[in-house]
Simulated scan of single mutants.
Amino acid sequence: MAKVEIYTKATCPYCQRAKRLLDGKGVDYVETDILRTPGERDTMIGRAGGKSTVPQIFIDGKHVGGSDDLAALERGGRLDALLAA
């Protein structure tokens, strides 16, 4: 299974939606709350090509975007292939 990383904030509804999708697929992921871990917001922005909104999601180190992007991958039938890598 692919390594999934998700940068979040505790009160973010889009973060909750993305995590629900991943949880529903039984995917293990590493979650980093950017407000609780000093410096992680800057790390996320750097990795995400300047994007500063949460969530920002990475699969095997590749930036896939936010919650809407993850949902679009699922709707398009492409998410399972990325997760199986």
Score class of each variant (00 low, 15 high):
residue 75 R to V: 07
residue 20 R to K: 13
residue 1 M to Y: 03
residue 83 L to F: 06
residue 44 M to D: 08
residue 16 Q to T: 12
residue 65 G to R: 00
residue 21 L to I: 04
residue 57 I to C: 03
residue 84 A to H: 14
residue 32 T to H: 14
residue 75 R to D: 07
residue 40 E to D: 09
residue 56 Q to C: 06
residue 7 Y to E: 08
residue 64 V to H: 07
residue 63 H to M: 11
residue 80 D to H: 05
residue 54 V to M: 06
residue 4 V to C: 11
residue 33 D to Y: 05
residue 2 A to S: 15
residue 51 K to T: 08
residue 77 G to K: 10
residue 33 D to V: 01
residue 60 D to C: 01
residue 9 K to R: 14
residue 18 A to M: 06
residue 7 Y to L: 07
residue 62 K to E: 14
residue 36 R to N: 10
residue 37 T to C: 11
residue 24 G to W: 04
residue 14 Y to P: 00
residue 25 K to L: 15
residue 78 R to W: 01
residue 2 A to M: 09
residue 64 V to F: 02
residue 5 E to T: 10
residue 36 R to M: 15
residue 7 Y to H: 06
residue 24 G to V: 04
residue 23 D to P: 01
residue 72 A to N: 11
residue 71 A to Y: 06
residue 50 G to D: 12
residue 53 T to M: 11
residue 4 V to T: 11
residue 59 I to H: 03
residue 35 L to D: 10
residue 80 D to P: 02
residue 48 A to D: 04
residue 69 D to L: 02
residue 36 R to F: 04
residue 5 E to I: 10
residue 13 P to E: 11
residue 10 A to I: 02
residue 82 L to D: 05
residue 68 D to C: 08
residue 22 L to Q: 13
residue 46 G to A: 14
residue 72 A to I: 10
residue 69 D to Y: 01
residue 33 D to L: 03
residue 74 E to D: 12
residue 76 G to N: 12
residue 17 R to I: 00
residue 29 Y to V: 14
residue 49 G to T: 05
residue 69 D to V: 01
residue 63 H to W: 04
residue 6 I to R: 11
residue 80 D to A: 15
residue 81 A to M: 08
residue 46 G to I: 05
residue 42 D to E: 15
residue 54 V to K: 07
residue 6 I to K: 10
residue 55 P to F: 01
residue 12 C to I: 07
residue 2 A to R: 11
residue 79 L to I: 07
residue 60 D to M: 14
residue 40 E to A: 14
residue 16 Q to A: 11
residue 3 K to A: 11
residue 40 E to N: 07
